[in-house]
Computed example of a mutant assay.
Amino acid sequence: MAFGTSFQKSAFHDNDRLEEMLREAMVVLGSFFASEYFPYVGWIVDRLTGLHGRLERVFHKLDGLFEQVIDAHLNPGRQRHDEFEYIVDVLLRIQVDKIEFGEGPLTKDGIKAVIMDLFLAGADTSAATVNWAMAELARNPRVTKKAQDEVRTFAGKNGIVTEDEIVRLQYLKMVVKETLRLHPPAALLLPRETTSHFRINGYDILPKTLIQINVWAISRDPRYWKNAEEFFPERFSDSSIDFKGQHCEFLPFGGGRRSCPGMYLATRTVELALANLLHCFDWKLPFGMKGKDIDMEEAAGPSLTISKKTALHLVPVDRVPRSLEDHMK
Rank of each mutant, 00 (worst) to 15 (best):
A121D: 13
P105V: 05
F250S: 07
G255N: 08
Y171V: 08
L137C: 03
A275H: 03
G42E: 08
Q170V: 14
A2L: 11
R152G: 09
A25H: 04
V114D: 03
E100M: 13
I111N: 00
G291W: 04
P316S: 14
P261R: 00
A138V: 01
L55A: 12
L62I: 13
L120N: 05
D14C: 09
W132D: 06
G301W: 04
G110D: 07
E67H: 01
E325P: 12
E24I: 01
R80L: 13
G4L: 03
T195Y: 06
L324G: 12
K226P: 10
E67K: 04
M116W: 04
F253M: 06
L285P: 05
P233Y: 04
H52Q: 13
E271W: 01
F32P: 13
L120Y: 06
E297M: 10
L272C: 02
P252V: 00
R54H: 06
H313N: 12
A299L: 09
M174Y: 02
K108G: 14
K157S: 14
S303R: 02
R152E: 10
K226G: 14
F243S: 05
A25S: 14
I111P: 01
K98Y: 08
W216V: 04
D293K: 03
N201I: 05
R78Y: 03
E163M: 12
P184Y: 00
L265F: 14
E83T: 07
L265A: 03
T267D: 02
A133W: 00
N227H: 15
D204I: 01
S31D: 15
C280I: 05
P191C: 11
D149L: 04
G159F: 06
S323E: 15
T153D: 12
F253C: 03
P191G: 09
L106M: 07
E85M: 13
